[in-house]
């Protein structure tokens, strides 16, 4: 219990200190910025409060796209990793392809995806899917294959078949890696969704709001969108953490 309080208290104290420093112009002084370049927290908060319904609607659009894309992408990534594990000879090629996809700059593909998909939502999901696939495939692959020495020999010695080995040995072993990938993917899926909105054929979403307002010198409005995006990401991240804690009670990292 005491630990839990500490868990909350420290970052909270740090955060409050940070916000106070920001509010009272410490950052402005250090970085030599004017309030109209970097709005202070109270201004951001009041702007956000005034535009909350619109911000939440935009947030819903972005986050739902990011989540759907992340789920599809993670699933595909895991399947590729599993294929590469089952068929090490031919399947590994899939890993190479995924890594290659990971290297394609998504921003560049966004306008092309505009042509492939007529709605902004489908385009967003497609971009996020591609982005999330690679991190999951790489992590899941290393989880499925970095086994304890001799454990596979042990499985062979009890005449376990490939499928049993996968279920009883590889899958549990890959769980921590899968959660690591999910944590990375939460962050990158939101970023990818936002970036794709910079180019999407729609005027909703956090990405459009950030870009549009920053260009128009509506700094406070732009920042309030950034705040909403960050909060949404943190909440999703916390959900993953909670699931991980329950699923990985046995693992050293949770002790």
């Amino acid at each position: 219990m005491k630990n839990k309080v500490k868990n909350l208290l420290w970052p909270l104290a740090f955060g409050i200190a940070l916000i106070l420093a920001w509010q009272f112009g410490v950052f402005h002084k250090i970085l030599d910025l004017k309030p109209f370049q970097l709005p202070v927290p109270t201004e951001i908060a009041s702007t956000l409060a005034a535009n909350l319904p619109k911000a939440l609607k935009d947030c819903g659009v972005t986050i739902s796209g990011a989540l759907i894309g992340m789920i599809i992408g993670s699933f595909m990534g895991f399947m590729i990793a599993a294929m590469a594990t089952f068929f090490p000879k031919w399947g590994y090629g899939g890993m190479i392809v995924v890594t290659a996809l990971n290297a394609v700059p998504i921003v560049a593909l966004s306008p092309i995806m505009n042509l492939w998909f007529s709605t902004g939502m489908a385009q967003k999901i497609a971009v996020v899917t591609v982005v999330c696939m690679a991190a999951m495939a790489i992590n899941a692959y290393s989880g499925l294959n970095n086994l304890n020495p001799y454990s596979i020999d042990l499985m062979h010695s009890v005449a376990a078949n490939k499928w049993t080995i996968f279920r009883k040995l590889r899958l549990p072993n890959s769980l921590p890696h899968i959660f690591t990938a999910s944590k990375i993917n939460i962050a990158s899926s939101i970023i990818a969704a936002i970036i794709s909105e910079y180019f999407a054929a729609s005027t909703s979403g956090l990405g459009f709001g950030i870009k549009d307002n920053l260009r128009k010198a509506e700094m406070a409005m732009g920042w309030s969108y950034i705040v909403v995006a960050s909060l949404a990401g943190v909440i999703l991240y916390c959900i993953i953490l909670l699931v991980e804690r329950d699923a990985l009670k046995w693992h050293a990292s949770q002790k």
Partner: peptide, 17 residues
């Protein structure tokens, strides 16, 4: 309906707008 346009004219050429 006002929609965002990218840098190209593809959306018009493609009859999306």
């Amino acid at each position: 309906k006002l929609v965002q346009q990218d840098y190209t004219m593809n959306q018009l050429l493609n009859n999306e707008i």
